[in-house]
Design a protein around this nucleic acid. Structure first.
Lengths: 332, 332
DNA sequence: GTGAAAGCGCTAACAT
DNA sequence: ATGTTAGCGCTTTCAC
């Protein structure tokens, strides 16, 4: 037997197809009795809506478009996990776009994803092109920017303050007794730049910022890159006795490089990571890291975009981070 | 101005819409001249096909359905990366389903993904339910099973032999001089069971297999779990002097636990991981691992499913693995 | 090799 | 609150 359609359900329930459509899409706009009749007919026939027909007729899809810079980065797999959780069981599915940290590529992909119009857009960062902001603002769908915060979002935003988080982490290193603190960063996207700014601010508040205390690259973050950047840093800044890394894989690589060179952590050298990706609590010594609300960002962004959040809640959500202090910064 | 449709392209090219449709979908069934005219019109108008309309009319989508157990597992992000690469620039997109290592869940998701009929299916492992195999065999689309190998695939298959890989790795530990070798495994899916079987075979070939030399769990794999399982193993098998781990995160956790206990690796204890996930080459000491062709599996599976492989090539592709020998198994 | 007609299943817009 | 009408843009089937 063929798949049942809205017409079949309507016949079963004794109403017209369009009425069934409405009962299904906006149950609140329909009488209680009808809703029950329709539900029963749907179950009896095992009706499943045809997305393509719906999309074609309305020129609007049930997709939530999610734009992230990279899928291989654990940071974003965590965020995607949160979104996936929040969307699970809803009528929405997610369509992932991978921008490779390129605003123009992002714009191009987004254009292709905006037809048919999705039900919502979740997009990483603030660094969209002016064109992209225009397109999104005029798309007539909820847009949630994630990861960062700003007083001036396209529509809504959920993230945390990268500069504050880095500033707090740097201050923690100062408080732990380190005096020549360096910064190691890979994949220096705008959020990483903000972490660097937070680092600089904290250093200046405690003394003088030295140019040679910073070693960064635009290449991807990895344990290997952590070792490479530590070598660079210690050669240009030999008196360095601690580092803030802009991601945990770098921090892990720094620790390994210290072990290779016989540098004692935390006695001779302090290490603080970022994002608390799971491995930093397991190393020996364990690594202090900034625990960031990655999964929660995804979960909340999805809830906001599908309108499941409280009406009263603000379109700007600044989530909190936390310094998870571990052995790598605890001098005796 | 509104988006151009097939009718618009047809008008521009001086032919009917259906002819344009054919010229686009089966260029080989159409005259050279027409093909050129149509191409020019498409470019001039910036025509982009409407997927929903196509899917609705044909009840066939341009999606390649990909079923994987988990997204947070790095093993599958690598495989997905390979698929994504191979599909990039083609007219196909991927639709990902997460089964959470549950065959019944897999069957349920697959049923929902099979309407409209996708252009192909890539599915992890051999452990589908009988129902699932039936559905797939009757779907009339290319199906590629991945990760494992079998002489009896539903349609096509690309993977490698997990038992042979584990057997080879175990033999490497024996050859390295270890005499009381244990096995540590998490997330004991069927492929992990095969690795365990390969381990047992190699041990028996060299002596006696002890029940207490095996410590496994069905919980997810992580560095933390590696430490937990090492504790279990050494308490039940104190003379143990080396382990084969069924995944690299476990191996890393084992190394850290050894460091915590002051056990010298590789002198007192040998460690071999599996999948070579990138971190094992960075630790101190670096960890020997079985390098598996994860990305290549994804790339090839996608090529096979969209028919881009040589016609002549076999529907059964057994890729090779490689033992990457590092410090953790090199006794002086 | 190309075209005409019909319809995929749904929803927008307008009735009632 | 519910129904009628008219497509959405494409592909299928059948003609020529």
């Amino acid at each position: 037997m063929p798949k049942p359609t809205l017409v079949d359900v309507g016949r079963e329930a004794g109403v017209s197809a369009i009425t069934v459509s409405r009962a299904l899409r906006s149950p609140e706009k329909v009488s209680e009795a009808l809703r029950r009749k329709v539900d029963r007919a749907v179950k009896k026939l095992g009706y499943v809506p045809n997305q393509s027909a719906s999309t074609l007729a309305s020129n609007k899809s049930n997709s939530i478009v999610v734009m992230v810079p990279s899928i291989s980065n654990n940071v974003f797999t965590d965020v995607l996990g949160g979104i996936s959780d929040a969307l699970h069981g809803s009528r929405f599915n997610m369509q992932i776009g991978y921008t490779n940290y390129d605003s123009l590529e992002e714009e191009r992909i987004l254009r292709s994803f905006l037809n048919p119009t999705p039900s919502g857009v979740i997009i990483s960062g603030l660094e969209q092109t002016e064109e992209t902001r225009q397109i999104l603002a005029n798309a007539g769908v909820p847009v949630v920017q994630i990861m960062d915060i700003s007083p001036d979002p396209i529509d809504m935003i959920v993230g945390f303050s990268h500069d504050q988080a880095a500033e707090t982490a740097t201050q923690h290193l100062v408080d732990a007794g380190y005096r020549n603190i360096g910064f190691i960063g890979a994949q220096m996207d705008p959020r990483s730049q903000k972490r660097l700014a937070g680092f600089k601010k904290a250093i200046k508040a405690n003394g003088t910022l030295l140019e040679q205390s910073i070693a960064v690259t635009n290449k991807p973050s990895s344990a290997h890159m952590g070792a490479v950047l530590l070598s660079k840093l210690t050669s240009q800044f030999p008196e360095c006795d601690a580092v803030l890394c802009n991601n945990d894989d770098l921090a892990v690589g720094v620790l390994f490089e210290c072990q290779r060179r016989g540098i004692k952590v935390p006695e001779e050298f302090g290490i603080c990571g970022f994002n608390d990706l799971g491995i930093s609590s397991e190393t020996v010594p364990s690594i202090t890291s900034v625990t960031t609300p990655l999964r929660e960002i995804g979960r909340l962004a999805a809830a906001m975009v599908i309108g499941e959040e409280e009406e009263s809640s603000s379109p700007i959500v600044d989530l909190s981070y936390n310094i998870s202090v571990r052995e790598s910064t605890q001098r005796v």
